[in-house]
Design a protein around this nucleic acid. Structure first.
Lengths: 218, 218
DNA sequence: TCCTCATGTAAGCATCGATTACATTTGGGG
DNA sequence: CCCCAAATGTAATCGATGCTTACATGAGGA
């Protein structure tokens, strides 16, 4: 079947097990390995990721200029998963109820962070794509931020808020939710007397407290 | 340089500069070096700390069983400084005004975190003394936590709070303040549209927003 | 079929944390 | 006052890591 150079022939597809070279998808394989390592609580090293991909220690550097680039790519992937989850949750929240959407957003955020702590960490650590490292991710992130802005603007337009300083509310809400997620990540909850099984309920409680704090009493 | 003048000036107390062996205060010197490295934004390594102390790479391990122990000690020292600052701020806040104390606490917390980000990080990262590594530090921390509890209990006793769920308020407040500090640490503020010079003011705003949210309207 | 380039390998460098055997300093007891 | 034992620091070394360079190979286009 090598006779047909011009047309699209020959899916000479090898079985995946049979190919020694990853051939371009090593990149993806390495990213998955990095995410898996993180999820296992293991310190992510380039060599270990290579090991999981059954590839030489130098191979990853064909696809990533350095370790941080690999971590950044892993963070991008994690952020993608995070975002799809958020959007799914938001898809079920009626647009007519901006504070309800705000709440749904916060709860989805914390649920994901509680259940994927290692992935949440590499997303948020900021060591990897703090500035403009990944345009796609920067845009992705900006869209999520814009979403929260929109929800607050809608709420304000409906007269649901006690304060008109939307930016302050936005930052406070984000700090609340991020801080809660990081308290979990950084192992603070035991010393604050929050038991393991109590955390997700506390997450909801904290969000509700915040929302009732910014909402205009009717 | 082994020409040792056997009849050394008998001064039991040598000037600190003149002694080749640190003699027990290497420990302190290494801790300071670690804190200084962190403050400079340099990755803290045992070797570099040893280098700053003008001592061999193996010397630190006479004083710390491993790197984490050094970091834990550095974290202890940072926490000590943090705590003195908090207590100073609280010393000026009248006991009769629990919400005012709460506010002063939060503002002192954030001011210190904004101005000593690297030290704040090694305090909070939790990698070092998450569980019971340092009894002293655990107790120290528990006292600060108890302080917030007391302030909220006082506020509740004076009927200043809208909600009776003090634990929820406590965790929310802590998450808010911790999240704000970490947003700064992790470089999130640029993408949330908070300028450098605006951060401390925003910190106050966010705390005031929170307090006005939990306070009973009079 | 052959050639080229992307992909992976092999080997090596520097750094780091950590351990071990050895040297030196110090302070207290004879 | 001296000497010795413990405390402290040194030197050499190990294994792991990030990263680079020189080389091998295999896949797909001409």
């Amino acid at each position: 079947m090598s006779a047909r150079p011009t047309s699209k022939p020959r899916a000479r597809r090898q079985t995946p097990e049979a190919r020694p070279y990853h051939h371009g998808d090593l990149r993806r394989v390495l990213i998955d390995a990095a995410l898996q390592l993180a999820a296992e609580g293991v310190e992510v090293s380039v060599r270990e990721a290579a090991r999981r991909a059954a590839v030489s220690p130098g191979a990853p550097f064909r696809h990533f200029p350095n370790r941080d680039a690999l971590m950044a790519a892993a963070a991008e992937e994690a952020q993608r998963r995070f975002r799809t989850e958020i959007e799914a949750a938001l898809g079920e929240a009626p647009a007519a109820d901006p504070l309800g959407r705000f709440r749904a957003f916060g709860i989805a955020y914390l649920r994901w962070a509680m259940r994927n702590p290692a992935h949440f960490e590499i997303i948020s650590t900021g060591r990897y794509f703090a500035h403009g490292s990944s345009p796609e991710l920067t845009r992705d992130n900006a869209e999520l931020i814009a979403l929260t802005e929109q929800m607050l603007a809608d709420a304000a337009a409906q007269g649901l808020l006690r304060s008109a300083d939307l930016k302050r509310i936005q930052i406070a809400g984000r700090a609340l939710v991020y801080g809660f997620a990081r308290m979990n990540l950084d192992g603070h909850f035991p010393r604050w007397g929050v038991e393991e099984g109590e955390i997700e309920r506390m997450a909801e409680g904290v969000i509700d407290l915040f929302i009732s704090g910014i909402a205009r009493p009717d």
